[in-house]
């Protein structure tokens, strides 16, 4: 419905960590669980050199790419600090069954 896909339970994602969802030709989407229990989803490609953000250190609502240390805002996908670039964010919602990821482009 509306491009929402069930992806699993919140506990399946480590706190201050991430897991990936493999989405066919769209590539991997990283789903993050922050220190304050917020869930975010971003394309798993750093805007700098396509590093896997899912393997980065999650701190606050940011993740630091493991390849060259760019720090990305988990909500917007924008690079922070002096770097410029953006990775695509995706919408995530949760209910009592678990987490859902939205893949359609016409979401709000």
């Amino acid at each position: 419905m509306n491009g929402w896909h069930y992806i699993g339970k919140v506990e399946d994602i480590p706190l201050q960590g991430a897991r990936i969802v493999a989405v066919g030709e769209l590539g991997n989407i990283a789903v993050f669980r922050s220190h304050s229990e917020q869930i975010y989803a971003l394309a798993d490609r750093c805007p700098h050199r396509q590093g896997p953000l899912s393997s980065g250190i999650v701190h606050g609502d940011k993740v630091t790419c493991p390849l060259h240390g760019w720090t990305i805002d988990l909500a917007s996908g924008e690079a922070l600090g002096a770097d410029h670039g953006c990775t695509r964010p995706f919408a995530v919602r949760s209910d009592e069954n678990g987490l859902y990821l939205q893949l359609s482009s016409n979401d709000g």
């Binding site: 992806i7 699993g8 969802v21 493999a22 989405v23």
Partner: peptide, 8 residues
């Protein structure tokens, strides 16, 4: 991966 979503 947490899960896979097929391309179709």
């Amino acid at each position: 991966p947490l899960t896979s979503i097929p391309f179709r």
